[in-house]
Amino acid sequence: MAPDLTWHALIALAQVVMIDITLAGDNAVVIGMVVRGLPATQRRKAIIVGVASAALMRIVLALVASQLLAVIGLTLAGGVLLLWVCWKMYQEMRHPEEVEGSTQNGTLGQAIFRIILADLSMSLDNVLAVAGAS
């Protein structure tokens, strides 16, 4: 392999890794925010399900990333979904007693549903960004 080509490949790999690390941090924040009101035993289960679902979604979405990039407007749809999740989390942080379905009085099932929904939007953004950079 030519040295010039090797450097370009390494730079591209570094870009993909940095994008992935940067965008993966939001999953941990969301999971932490959602599970904070659950009892300790349920909190652990929700965290495990959240992390596993995020990893699984990224694998599945990465397998079809080239097809997803061909769909016009999908990146915009992922961004809108991510904005909706962020708005809901902001409302809960600002006024936790007023938010309907708050996890502070919610169930494990509600927490897992919210984590999976957030994971889906963030995983889609992550995969599209990495695929676009590569």
Rank of each mutant, 00 (worst) to 15 (best):
P39A: 09
Q110G: 06
E100Q: 13
Q104F: 14
M93H: 05
V64T: 08
V60N: 03
S121D: 02
I11M: 10
L124N: 01
E98C: 10
D125H: 03
D119E: 11
A133P: 04
T75Y: 04
Q15M: 15
G32F: 07
V35K: 00
A65T: 09
V16P: 00
V35R: 01
V85W: 02
Q15C: 15
R44K: 15
K45C: 05
P3V: 13
D119M: 04
K45E: 09
M89G: 02
Q15P: 00
V51T: 09
V85A: 10
A14W: 10
M93A: 15
T6L: 15
Q67V: 08
L69S: 08
F113E: 04
I21G: 04
G73S: 10
A24F: 08
I48T: 08
V60A: 12
I115M: 05
L38A: 04
R94W: 11
N27P: 00
H95R: 14
I115N: 00
A70H: 14
I21V: 15
Q15F: 11
I19H: 01
E100I: 13
V130I: 13
L128I: 10
T103Q: 09
V30A: 09
L76P: 00
G109D: 09
L74E: 08
R36V: 08
R114A: 08
G78K: 02
I59N: 01
I112E: 02
R114L: 15
L83F: 13
A111R: 00
A70L: 15
Q91T: 04
A40C: 03
S123N: 10
P3Y: 11
L128F: 07
S123F: 04
A131G: 07
M89S: 10
G37N: 10
I21R: 11
A52W: 07
G73C: 11
M57I: 13
L13Y: 07
A52C: 09
I115D: 01
I31S: 01
A129D: 03
T41W: 08
Q110E: 12
A52I: 14
V34R: 00
I19R: 02
M33H: 08
I112A: 03
V80H: 07
V130N: 00
L124E: 05
